[in-house]
Design a protein around this nucleic acid. Structure first.
Lengths: 125, 125
DNA sequence: CGGAATCCGAATGGATACTG
DNA sequence: CAGTATCCATTCGGATTCCG
């Protein structure tokens, strides 16, 4: 019955890798975009502004490998591939979205803090 | 009254940078560690296994700049510096901890998914 | 003890060209 | 359209050294 104790604070624990992926910049945005429903590769590329096709592919493969995203290929010309969250992916989207919401809600405070910090640490010339 | 609309999906929006920091691998672990209470530099280095002194310093500076962590220096020999979460930092710790919890709770599924994926995509030799 | 600064190899990530 | 494969610049990040 004793389940293994996953400890991301241990550099050798597999959970560390997963936390890395889950905390990845592009993963958060891609999962967030997929929360709206299935999306095609090109749609994701447009939604997640600034992501290169290389990184988008990498991110999607990683999410797919971890069972968070499902990839469906429609045999037709031109090719059509859709990505959508799996049950795991949907459960992950909750804490991820919370992070996104926190960010948006706290931007004013952070911007202020940055200005204060930069003002107090930069003055040299 | 109309607040600015923060959109992390826009590469030029400041919220993108903040989401990046918040989703940073070390940030998540450091904030998590600080949830227990104030910690000294050396204690954090020990808790967050695998982090170099350089990255720990960088991470702490970044968090400090964003007003998430407070740094207190005790004038004594040898030097003593403590870090602790600010109010902002504590509010951030909630979604971050949720992410950590999600990871630990879903590790079994992910490990299984990875094995399945690797088994289906690797076989070449 | 708690850093800052430097050096440098490794990994990241963008741009580009090519394929099914 | 949806990738894969390369090339290459930038960044990351560890190890080391030195300072308050």
């Amino acid at each position: 019955m004793n389940e293994p104790v996953w400890d991301p604070y241990d550099r050798n624990c597999p959970s560390r890798q997963v936390l890395d992926r889950v905390g990845d910049r592009w993963s958060v945005l891609v999962v967030g975009a997929l929360t709206q429903g299935p999306r095609r590769f090109s749609e994701l590329a447009k939604t997640v502004d600034g992501v290169s096709q290389k990184m988008l592919t990498q991110t999607l493969r990683g999410l797919e490998r971890d069972g968070l995203v499902a990839r469906t290929i429609f045999a037709q010309i031109p090719p059509r591939v859709e990505y959508e969250l799996t049950a795991s992916g949907r459960s992950l989207s909750e804490p991820m979205l919370a992070l996104e919401e926190w960010t948006k809600a706290n931007m004013p405070r952070i911007v202020t803090a940055r200005e204060a910090y930069d003002g107090a640490h930069a003055p040299k010339a």
